[in-house]
Design a protein around this nucleic acid. Structure first.
Lengths: 203, 203
DNA sequence: CCTACCGATCGGTAGG
DNA sequence: CCTACCGATCGGTAGG
């Protein structure tokens, strides 16, 4: 076990210019949109000259692809491991809501997630098909969660349309949530669970 | 009452090039986004040369402003007159859902509505403030509708966050609804009412 | 990863 | 509303 280059020791110091570019691109695509973001914006944000990002990515389109795939990957990973199987259905569902909202609204993932939601249409057909396949797999997890809720008698309908209404309520938060607002992300998750399920008999 | 120029007779024949431009711009802004749409795209779509749209609009930005304002105007007008005061709360609510969804997904209004929802950020601060003011007025109608539902004992919570979840479920339909799909717009409205209120005691 | 650059395209305008 | 055009900017590349 040599000490040098050990990943656990100093991964912070290793420069990762490709990662820097993806992060900067994500932020800019989120803020200004893909088409309105220039290579020069991105290069500038990471302290490069305008031609240098092309050393890491063949095209601007490839940068978008990297951002979008990171977005769907991150959210699927997070939500998949969120619900504890030992918990009752309602608590499991709320844990999934919390995980999704944290990824969507938290500092770490929001630029990737927002780019995924709003800029994917600028991908070429091949990359779009890739994204659709991953999204389908992700949303199947939610379909299953609704099925569990219905089996537990907590909701009346677990159809595809219901899932899409739920995804809308979730994903629309990107448009209005402000980190400095009065609600925490966890409060939002609890309110959304109540919106979908209804209060647990009280009131 | 002279017959010539009567509005009721031949409004179809009167050329309205400005309106043509707004409609074409709306369609293109919806399809490709504001930044990716060029003046040449728009001119082409209405059979003009690239310089001619500027005879009707000072800037590309002004075209976006016209499209977005048409979007919010149309939806506010439609939804405001949708609910019959003599109907019970649930039916009134469902009528509003139907009106909103028709505007959002129907052929006539969807390009304006989608541009309103997704391209408003490309407006300058002044125009954005204008849009926010109109949107606030529009959403106040929904806040009132939720208040009525709560008073009737049909929902548990009529807070601002609940309204935003509802707007999310509504507006997200733009992302997935296909006119050639298996659901009609009116069926969607009924399902969304059931999602928000719950079934009326049966099942 | 920088320097220096290219061809294409963009929003917009003058003059009719 | 067209013709003819402008300066600016864009994504991308060759050569180091």
């Amino acid at each position: 076990m040599a000490a040098s280059k050990s990943k656990a020791v100093a991964t912070t110091e290793e420069p990762n210019r490709r990662g820097d570019i993806v992060r900067a691109a994500g932020r800019l695509f989120h803020e200004k949109g893909y088409s309105a973001t220039t290579i020069r914006d991105i290069a500038n944000a990471v302290g490069m000259r305008s031609g240098s990002p092309f050393y890491h990515f063949k095209t601007k389109h490839d940068m978008l692809r990297a951002v979008v795939l990171e977005g769907i990957d991150a959210i699927e990973r997070t939500v998949a491991q969120a619900p504890d199987p030992k918990l009752p259905p309602r608590a499991r569902f709320e844990a999934m809501l919390r995980a999704h909202l944290r990824q969507l609204l938290g500092e770490e993932g929001r630029d990737f997630a927002a780019t995924l939601l709003h800029e994917s249409r600028h991908l070429d057909p091949e990359a779009q098909a890739e994204v659709v396949a991953l999204t389908d797999r992700y949303e199947a997890m939610w379909q299953q969660a609704l099925k569990d809720l219905k089996r537990a008698g907590l909701i009346a309908d677990d159809s595809r349309v219901t899932r899409l209404f739920l995804m809308g309520a979730l994903n629309w938060t990107v448009q209005w949530y402000r980190p400095d607002g009065s609600k925490t992300i966890d409060q939002l998750a609890r309110q959304l669970a109540a919106f979908v399920i209804g209060l647990p008999q009280s009131k």
